[in-house]
């Protein structure tokens, strides 16, 4: 199996997934369900990007929600302060998120894993508290004092994507396809990174850092590249989030959001390609059911996260791979087993 065919296989899977998602609004008409699928695509996209960073590049960033929020705030701030349409502010948000990642990456990514995690976490916390404690009014909107960065309440009620006037009652279908577009971008980008030359560099650095360095691979440089790319798509997703919900506020920084997305990655399988997507599906369904059992969402997320880390550290992707290799041993095809072991990407479906 050549590298190219693996890449093509994943891209084909990508096309099929997006085509499937694109057909869903033909069968599902309830606004609530479409809204839930939109939310799924948004969180899945964030999880996909974080998995590229955490699972493949080996950058333990806890700052993903910052980039998400930068995208969202770009849409919110440009929408409220300058009356920009989200169509123009969304790309701006993604670019600003990538630039922020470049600055933070240059400052932090030379350090070791644990330091990177702590610093990115601290930076998010700092931005969060600076936004929340801002009191000076920049403008007044509808009699409400609005600080430049929106203060504790954030921005809401700015211009939407324009589908409400265009499609009337079915506006959410328009939003659905915009979010699907961002999701598709994010998915394709992640596959190109994981199975392209960048992913090869990440694997080399992960296998033996010293040998990789001896062959001229600069760890910090690749980490910064990964950080900036994933921040761009995370920011884009955040911008789409803000355009859909017409909201951007400091509640995005809450720890529970971060852990929710982390749970998606861990449940699906860290270091896999498709794991975060399946993890996102499962976590969304779990949370949906949990709504019927009372307000236990965070308890449940915590329990699921702990159980998976303890018992299934490679997530569902890893579990199915183990299962498959066991089945292969039973049928006695020793060659296949070797192939599955030798090719780490066998663990990914």
């Amino acid at each position: 199996m050549t590298n190219l065919s693996i890449l093509k296989r994943h891209l084909l899977g990508c096309v099929l997934t997006v085509a499937f998602m694109a057909m869903l609004p033909l069968f599902i008409t309830q606004r609530y369900f479409l809204g839930e699928i939109i939310l799924f695509m948004i969180w899945a996209s964030v999880a996909i990007q974080w998995n590229v960073l955490l699972g493949h590049a080996g950058v333990f960033s806890l700052g993903q929600m910052l980039f998400f929020a930068i995208g969202a705030y770009a849409v919110g701030m440009l929408g409220v302060h300058l009356d920009w349409s989200p169509w123009f502010s969304m790309p701006v948000g993604a670019v600003v998120a990538a630039l922020a990642a470049l600055v933070i990456g240059l400052a932090c990514l030379r350090l070791k894993t644990a330091y990177v995690a702590l610093l990115t976490f601290a930076i998010v916390f700092m931005v969060d508290s600076l936004i929340r404690t801002e009191v000076e009014c920049f403008t007044t909107v509808g009699g409400r004092c609005l600080p430049f960065f929106g203060g504790g309440q954030g921005f809401f009620g700015f211009d939407d994507l324009g589908f409400r006037s265009m499609l009337k009652g079915k506006w959410i279908v328009g939003n659905y396809y915009v979010v699907l577009g961002a999701f598709a971008f994010s998915l394709v980008a992640s596959i190109l990174v994981i199975h392209g030359r960048l992913g090869l560099a990440f694997r080399a650095l992960g296998d033996s850092q010293i040998y990789a360095a001896a062959r001229g691979l600069n760890r910090t440089r690749f980490h910064i590249i990964a950080f900036v790319i994933t921040a761009f798509f995370t920011g884009l997703t955040g911008a789409v989030y803000a355009a859909h919900f017409r909201f951007a506020g400091p509640s995005l920084f809450e720890f529970s959001n971060l852990v929710f997305i982390l749970a998606m990655i861990v449940v699906g399988g860290l270091k896999s390609t498709w794991g975060p997507v399946f993890g996102a599906v499962l976590m969304m369904i779990l949370v949906e059911f949990a709504k019927g059992w009372g307000d236990i969402q965070n308890t449940l997320i915590g329990v699921v996260l702990i159980i998976f880390v303890l018992l299934l550290p490679r997530g569902l992707a890893g579990a199915t791979a183990t299962l498959r290799s066991k089945l292969m041993t039973d049928s006695g095809t020793q060659d296949n087993l070797h192939a599955a072991r030798a090719d780490p990407r066998g663990a990914e479906q």
């Binding site: 720890f255 861990v266 997320i301 915590g302 880390v309």
Partner: peptide, 28 residues
């Protein structure tokens, strides 16, 4: 939790994930 994970190869990262789970659970 911790005693079962001490011998993992990627202890530094996985223990952060696990304790993040503990944090959100206890807080809730």
């Amino acid at each position: 939790i911790v005693s079962h994970m001490l011998h993992r190869e990627d202890f530094t990262t996985t223990i952060m994930v696990a304790t993040a789970g503990v944090a959100i659970l206890l807080q809730d």
